[in-house]
């Protein structure tokens, strides 16, 4: 459990980092908090020949940029807990960060790292899919925005190209009459999720106007649930038929089966969490209105 040999480079600017990553291509990896990459290296599951340390780059701002909340790639998970914009606009986001790991992970782990690592049950990838975030990736050749739904391809596999690095994640700010929730269940607190469900709702006249739902544990990446999203439109905030929505979704999935949870259990759990997340979101909507 010692990493294979690698060279360490400290990036002095974003341009410097991109230059190095461009030069190393598939053999280079940016490192921030190292909460996922370092264990992978110690197991020799990842063997980058070059590590580009980006910790000193000024990439940790959380700012409103027009219609989006832009979160710099180096923002540590701990920063969300008392951020007023997260609390006001993205309640499911705030719920979700409470499930992220342990204090050490929260202080060191970054959003860019979590998104790029693409653990299939991690919270921030799920939240970015739920809120239709844009992943802002940059390389020496320029910048591009990738829709979160198109970013996560499989477990630990993303749409990032060699030499490319996540510099920010942009979350479109939902309308005022909206809310959401996120529920996760793992074997122990701070564990990888057995399953999690995030819900984001727009509402009006006591009804759901638009809905988004994300699920971890059903596939090898955080997946949206279009049939539930359609089903929920028009449902009343009081008694939104969450249990039925859970059954509809559970019937459509083929969940992961592993030594922590059988596929049957995951399916049952996902149905129940879907129900609870919808109820929780609707309760919030009612409390707000």
């Amino acid at each position: 459990m010692r990493p294979a040999s690698f060279e360490y480079h400290r990036a002095t600017s974003l341009e410097h980092a991109l230059e190095l990553l461009g030069e190393f291509g598939e053999n280079g990896r940016p490192i921030a908090g190292g909460q996922s990459l370092v264990p992978m290296m110690n197991f020799r599951l990842a063997r980058p020949g070059h590590l580009v340390d980006i910790n000193r780059l000024p990439l940790d701002a959380i700012e409103i940029a027009g219609p989006v909340l832009r979160i710099g790639a180096l923002t540590r998970h701990i920063a969300y807990f008392d951020n007023p914009w997260i609390a006001r606009h993205f309640p499911a986001f705030l719920d979700a960060v409470h499930y992220i790991g342990h204090p050490t992970i929260r202080r060191n782990g970054s959003i860019g790292g979590s998104i790029s690592h693409a653990d299939p049950t991690a919270e921030l990838p799920a939240i970015s899919v739920l809120y239709d975030a844009d992943i802002v990736a940059r390389s020496v050749t320029g910048e591009r925005r990738i829709k979160a739904q198109e970013f996560f391809l499989s477990a630990y596999v993303t749409a990032l190209e060699p030499g490319e690095m996540v510099v920010a994640v942009e979350f479109p700010i939902p309308p005022a009459a909206s809310t959401g929730s996120f529920i996760e269940l793992g074997e122990r607190s701070g564990d990888f999720a057995t399953a999690s469900i995030g819900i984001s709702l727009e509402h009006g006249g006591g009804k759901i106007v638009r809905a988004a739902m994300v699920c971890c544990g059903a596939d090898l990446f955080p997946m949206r649930a279009p049939e539930v999203e359609d089903f929920l439109v028009g449902k009343p905030l009081v008694n939104p038929s969450g249990a039925e929505a859970g059954c509809i979704f559970a019937a459509s999935i083929d969940p992961v089966d592993d030594h922590i949870a059988s596929a049957d259990y995951r399916r049952g759990l996902i149905a129940e969490l879907t129900h609870r997340a919808i109820e929780a979101a609707c309760t919030r909507a009612l409390d707000k209105s």
């Binding site: 264990p39 074997e187 607190s189 701070g190 564990d191 030594h259 922590i260």
Partner: peptide
Amino acid sequence: ADYLMPLAP
């Protein structure tokens, strides 16, 4: 990650 020890919480 796979061998789960009891944790304080």
